[in-house]
Amino acid sequence: MATIPYPPAPELGRYADDPVDKPAAVSSAAAEPSPVSSSTASHAAKGSSDGDIEDWDSTVLSSSFTAKAPRKIYILHNDATGQTIVIDKSTLLGRKPSMDVPEGAKAEKVEDPTRTTSRNHAAISIDQNGTLWIEDYGSLNGTYIIRDGQEAQVLKGKPRELDAPATLRIGDQFFQLTERQ
């Protein structure tokens, strides 16, 4: 079976936004038929005065490539303080959490009148598959998942998978974790 070679890269100056110090010379390749459609070529020549993307080549991905899985959003609610925290991306929780979090994550302050929540107490993360995880950051008073009346401690450095609905104890603050419908 013969392999098909990759087509050569277009010569510099082919597109209007190419960085070129001098005009591109016309090569013998220019006399050959171009893989770019004539409507694209005329569009590139006239620029983007109509607000379209300059190098649009009329290729449209099928919906299976462009359709994204629905994003899940979770709610943490504390009845005692009335605080509600929206978990729509990976979230660092604490009494005074560091605002220096990675791009795509956020920090949320836990209202804690008893001061049993550590500054950077725990994090709830959502992985690429949409699975929810919780990890304790070495807090003094711990992080627990409560199911059927049983507390399971989340240990430092040992993320645990988390399913909603659940009850979380962060320090001595109890939060109900639910999925937003």
Rank of each mutant, 00 (worst) to 15 (best):
L61C: 03
V26S: 07
S58Y: 10
D100H: 07
D148M: 10
A24V: 07
D50C: 06
I145W: 05
S139V: 05
L177Q: 01
R14T: 14
R14D: 11
A25E: 13
P97W: 04
D136V: 14
N78I: 06
N141P: 02
D172P: 00
W133L: 08
Q150T: 13
Q128M: 11
R71I: 10
H77N: 10
D172L: 03
A122G: 04
I134M: 08
E111C: 10
T40F: 02
M1K: 03
W133Q: 01
S27Y: 00
P102C: 04
M1R: 04
A45F: 12
A16D: 10
G142F: 01
A107R: 01
N120M: 01
P113T: 15
L12S: 13
A166T: 13
L132A: 07
D136K: 15
A31N: 08
G94L: 02
L140H: 04
D79L: 06
S125D: 07
S63A: 14
H43G: 09
D127S: 09
F175Y: 12
T3S: 12
D50R: 06
N129K: 08
I53R: 09
E151P: 01
G13T: 07
R71N: 10
T81C: 02
F174S: 14
Y6E: 04
I126R: 00
Q181G: 12
A152P: 00
Y15D: 08
G157T: 01
D50S: 11
R147W: 03
G138S: 07
R180A: 15
R14A: 11
G138N: 12
T178I: 13
H43P: 05
G82E: 02
R71S: 13
T117F: 05
D148A: 15
T117L: 11
S63D: 15
G130F: 05
P159T: 08
S28N: 11
L162A: 10
S48W: 07
T84I: 12
V101I: 01
L93T: 05
P35N: 09
V36I: 08
G149H: 06
A105W: 12
D88F: 02
H121E: 04
T116Y: 06
Q150F: 08
G138E: 10
P165E: 11
T81S: 08
P102N: 07
V60D: 14
